[in-house]
């Protein structure tokens, strides 16, 4: 079974040379730490920066340079700043190659919910609705089940949706799955996790065909 860093490490393998990548808040942010350093990748943050670098050294923080999680960041050579309308022009106009975001629920048809629990919690959608409606390559990073042990991979989402039929791939602490239209197709198992464990933790339809390899981390 993987921890949050393990999930990020596995997703980092999906990041290819020449990609512009948008990382959501939480586990997705960790992906940047595991991307190979022999490929060229630029990270976009929807608050208006392309070419994000690591956190600043102590004492060098600049309140005017933050990421979408409101964390202080640095920029790398080749970086640029822009306004929010242009930032979402990049996203809506499909100039960003890969979007990685978290979710509360994903349905087997690719629906995603991640912004609201009616009557209990409202975080707001932020840029998530714009991202999922336009991005062609969306990977969800999340735990397979919630804190109560209930599956987050469902036949149908129960929470208010963020987007419809948009998720392509899901990486959890237990598995890598592809959204196929017929259900979640199991591609890989996390180290030491059996197919039976994944089947039990998945409420939606899980397609298991042949031998399922263990993730190569």
């Amino acid at each position: 079974m993987l921890d949050k860093n393990g999930i990020a490490k596995r997703i980092a393998k999906e990041v290819k040379d020449g990609y512009y990548v948008n990382l959501g808040i939480g586990i997705p942010t960790l992906v940047a730490n595991f991307v190979r350093d022999d490929i060229s990748v630029e990270f976009q943050s929807e608050n208006g920066v392309l070419g994000m670098g690591p956190f600043p050294f102590e004492g060098e923080e600049d309140a005017d340079v933050i990421n979408a999680g409101k964390q202080t960041i640095t920029t790398l050579p080749g970086a640029s700043f822009f306004d929010s309308a242009m930032s979402f022009g990049m996203i809506r106009g499909k100039h960003v190659d890969l979007t990685i975001l978290g979710a509360m629920e994903v349905a087997e048809n690719g629906d995603i919910a991640n912004w609201k629990i009616p009557g209990k919690m409202v975080k707001g959608m932020g840029g998530a609705m714009d991202l999922v409606a336009s991005a062609e390559n969306i990977i969800v990073a999340m735990m397979h089940t919630n804190k109560a042990g209930i599956s987050k991979l469902l036949t149908k989402c129960t929470l208010p949706l963020t987007g419809v039929g948009c998720v392509k791939k899901i990486v959890t602490n237990l598995a890598v799955m592809e959204v196929t239209g017929e259900g979640f197709k199991l591609l890989e198992r996390a180290p030491g996790v059996s197919v039976e464990t994944i089947i039990r933790a998945t409420e939606g339809k899980l397609i298991v065909e042949g031998e399922i390899p263990e993730m190569d981390l």
């Binding site: 929807e46 306004d83 929010s84 309308a85 979402f88 209990k120 409202v122 840029g127 609705m129 714009d130």
Partner: peptide, 22 residues
């Protein structure tokens, strides 16, 4: 903000960020 919204004291229109900017 969350408390005032959930209690209904505050009217809130949540709008996707890119839509808000546009």
């Amino acid at each position: 903000f969350e408390r005032q919204m959930l209690s209904g004291e505050l009217e809130v229109e949540l709008t996707p960020q890119g839509t808000l900017a546009e």
